[in-house]
Amino acid sequence: MSDSTGSDLAEYLRLLDEVFDADYLALVESAEREGRFPRQLIEKLGTAGVFRSKWSSARHIDLPKLVALSERLGGLGSFSVSVGVTLHDSAIAVLRRFGESDYLREIADRAVEGTAIVCLGASEARGGSDLQNAESVAVPTATGYRLRGAKKFVSLSTVANFIILVVRVVSDPDADESGEVALFVVEADKVEIGEPYAKLGAAFLDTAPVEFDLEVPAEAMLARPGTGLAALSWALGSERLSVAAQVVGACDLALGVTVSQLMRRRQFGKTLFEHQALRLRFADLQARLDVLRYALRGLAASRTPLSIRTASGFKVTAVRFGEEVMSECLHVFGGAGYLSGVAPVERWWREMKLGRIGGGADEVLWELVAAGMRPDHVRHDRLVTV
């Protein structure tokens, strides 16, 4: 695990200040209006060196920079942007860690520079998180593999140059053969990408179904059979911790905007903020947000290797808290907050739900946390008499 020094992190924070300027915010707002994910959102980060600085270590995740970047993305107020950039960055994580061929290393370098966008195709046509039973397959050929199958939810697929596909490697696709999970990188223009879905939120995070039947060279294999799930877990660990940090940035924005509303709107002869019930409810949310923020930063600074259990626990805890924050913020805006286009809180409220579904639903993540729990039999026997 590679972590940045204090001075290196400070320099990275200054870089983020420069990149997320008024022009970048205008680009985000334009994309929200037009409903399409523009490549410039990732290209600008690549050109400025945001990914290059974050991935100065060839193979390992820099946790302080991951948290810093994700907080800033969440503070943009657009889940389409924050999730889209995180998906690309998570693809870089798995390419950097497991890409062994010159072909894959070149793709990783292009992704870091922002000249190529990479996304992940994992969920099957029926959806869900049961990746070890993927129906998409790879069959060995004389020169490589033939990949056949479909993925239902592939975000960024309409703008991506490359897609990382989760498949099972089998010798005969028609035989009753379980096969082992592997990862392959394919060129996006060689697969069939369907029309993007109309979604409840994250409107311009283009998510579409993908179908494929193509041959790829052996060098396109990113994770060999039997290691695919482990490699995917590496990417998902990065993504889940990123989501938790995005929630911090998003809640910080939402609370700041809502407290401003509390101090400006008057009811019964005084501002809403002067009503103790409301003031203290938001003080509670602010205190819990601070705890989450510094827990994430503390984890990042601890130099503790990122585990799938830790990342899963942070993600599920953060997003459930984020839902509560967005609901309370919407509540303060009253009827106006329930109207589309009047205040962004209704969109933030809708989009926060995505965090409890994408990247692993609550129940999947709780199972991962539970799998890592260990009993303390020694102290149980000493302290418990029944």
Rank of each mutant, 00 (worst) to 15 (best):
T317F: 10
A182V: 12
V325Q: 02
L41V: 13
H60C: 12
I117Y: 02
A202I: 13
R39G: 05
S307F: 00
T86I: 07
A361V: 12
L229V: 05
G35V: 04
F268A: 14
V167W: 01
A208Y: 04
F79P: 06
T158I: 08
P225Q: 04
A188G: 07
V85Q: 04
R320S: 11
I107N: 00
D362W: 05
Y294Q: 12
A244H: 01
S90L: 01
W366K: 15
G256Q: 09
V85C: 08
E323Q: 13
L339E: 12
S101M: 07
K199R: 14
R148V: 14
V247A: 02
C119P: 02
V112E: 07
L27C: 11
G114I: 00
S155E: 00
V170M: 09
S327T: 15
S260Q: 15
F204W: 12
F184A: 03
D8N: 14
L253K: 07
A220F: 05
G313M: 00
E180C: 09
S90R: 06
E367D: 14
G360T: 08
D376Y: 12
K44T: 10
T304I: 11
G144L: 03
Q40M: 11
A343I: 10
V378M: 13
G201C: 10
P209G: 00
S123P: 01
V137G: 01
L9W: 03
V118L: 07
S70F: 09
A182R: 06
E135N: 14
R265A: 06
T143K: 11
S327V: 11
R110Q: 12
Y197S: 05
Q261S: 11
L354Y: 05
V332Q: 09
E11C: 11
Q132T: 13
P375H: 14
G201W: 06
A300P: 01
S56M: 11
V325I: 06
R374A: 13
A91M: 10
D252R: 08
Y294W: 10
A111E: 00
V67I: 12
V291H: 06
L9D: 05
E328F: 07
L69G: 00
G74T: 04
T271F: 00
T5S: 15
L214P: 00
Q132Y: 14
T5W: 08
G75S: 15
V191H: 02
I357G: 09
H275D: 09
S312Q: 04
T115V: 09
F37W: 04
A150L: 13
S242A: 14
S56H: 09
E100I: 04
E29C: 09
S53C: 12
R59P: 08
V169G: 01
R379M: 15
D174Q: 13
K190W: 11
G337C: 04
L229R: 05
V186K: 01
F37G: 03
F273G: 04
R382Q: 14
K44R: 15
K65G: 09
D252E: 13
L222M: 03
V378E: 15
P38R: 03
V369T: 09
G6W: 14
A287Q: 12
A371V: 05
L383Q: 12
D21I: 11
A235Q: 08
S242T: 05
E11L: 14
G121E: 02
R168W: 03
V83A: 14
E124G: 15
